[in-house]
Design a protein around this nucleic acid. Structure first.
Lengths: 205, 205
DNA sequence: AGTTGTCAACCAAACAGTTAGTTAGCGCAC
DNA sequence: GTGCGCTAACTAACTGTTTGGTTGACAACT
């Protein structure tokens, strides 16, 4: 076995990602992670302080992967949703980790990189709205969130619902995500225009 | 303390619901449940066999609550989504339990009552499609799933996304859910009609 | 009415297995 | 020879589950 701190960290993060995706933070077993990483339990504590620290590293890694890998074309927002849904389909551990993080770490401060990325993409949406490319019925960041939500359709739906739907064809799934995103952002459904700019500060509270 | 088996079971299920919603199945502590229920640990094993059995009871209870509480008007499907989103907003433990169930019990056989309900509502959607009330671009059960998904928007989105969106006004949230569902089901976005009936058996596999 | 028997609801304490985290030391490479 | 990457063995704490026994309600019997 080569001695290489960086490579070992990498293996631990990868093994942690798989373990956390499968069992969550509480359910993850430090011994299993060490074994899969072909390393040793003590290394986890050496490099990441504790189990929570390893999860932080996994989470950080995941956020960067998604942020870096997701292109953005304001003139084809449904395409963005489809792209992200492809990522989810190709890496099924991502949606699981996202859900675990929400449930077990929902109170954590927001991730800096993810937040910065969301803000910048939101700004791009806002620009698109000003140019008339995107409906301005929704707040720009809501548009972003809706895209993310549409992308998550197949991976976040309950197993029971999935079983009843029984759509297994990948291409059909992509079509549906695209249609869903397209429809959501179309001007059709909303009769009256949005009331005067409630944007960053909600009307009440 | 009165002796009342039914009431004790009820208290255990309620306490279990809160505990499981907060910490998941693995993270739930049997001692805490017993304490909150003002009962005893051994009672859980007496009535529900084990921790997993108590979760089953909680899950069953939850499924029935949602199924029974959700009305259905085929001529106003977005309204159904809004209603469900209201339920989620009023009982925040529901979305959490649903996510925990997906993550920790995704391999369980589907819940009979929930499945039957989904099938029957799906059939109603199909009838609506035949009468031209509902777009037939999507398979009827996909329409159902899309409604459920739209309803889950505010409760299933990641905390980071929620923080960036920062929409706190409840009425605005409801509007957005309605608009999202309305748009998704509008005919606008989908250029070509759906290819010949892939419905229950997908084209491939 | 009072006594007794029975059964289900209930509980405190202990058990047995597991797990996050620690430590003390080994050996390679520079 | 020294520091860093690594490891096996260890421990203290925790947790689901079981056990053994107590308590109260209720009815049958005297």
């Amino acid at each position: 076995m080569q001695r290489d701190a960086e490579a070992t960290k990498r293996r631990l993060i990868d093994a942690g990602r798989a373990e956390f995706a499968a069992h969550g933070i509480t359910g993850a077993r430090v011994d299993r992670i060490a074994e899969v990483a072909q390393s040793n339990k003590a290394q986890i504590y050496h490099y990441f302080k504790n189990k929570a620290g390893l999860f932080d590293a996994v989470w950080d890694d995941l956020c960067r992967q998604i942020v870096d890998g997701l292109p953005f074309d304001v003139s084809d927002l449904p395409g963005v949703a489809v792209q992200l849904s492809d990522v989810y389909a190709d890496y099924p551990e991502l949606p699981r980790l996202i859900l675990w993080q929400r449930l077990e770490r929902g109170e954590d401060p927001p991730h800096a990189v993810a937040t910065a990325d969301l803000l910048s993409r939101g700004a791009a949406v806002a620009a698109g709205q000003r140019r008339g490319l995107v409906t301005d019925w929704y707040e720009p960041h809501v548009v972003m969130a809706m895209l993310l939500h549409a992308a998550a359709f197949w991976e976040f739906s309950s197993p029971d619902v999935m079983a009843v739907m029984d759509v297994r064809d990948r291409e059909r799934r992509r079509e549906i995500v695209r249609a869903m995103a397209t429809g959501m952002l179309a001007e059709s459904g909303q009769a009256e225009p949005r009331q005067a700019e409630p944007r960053q500060a909600g009307p009440e509270r």
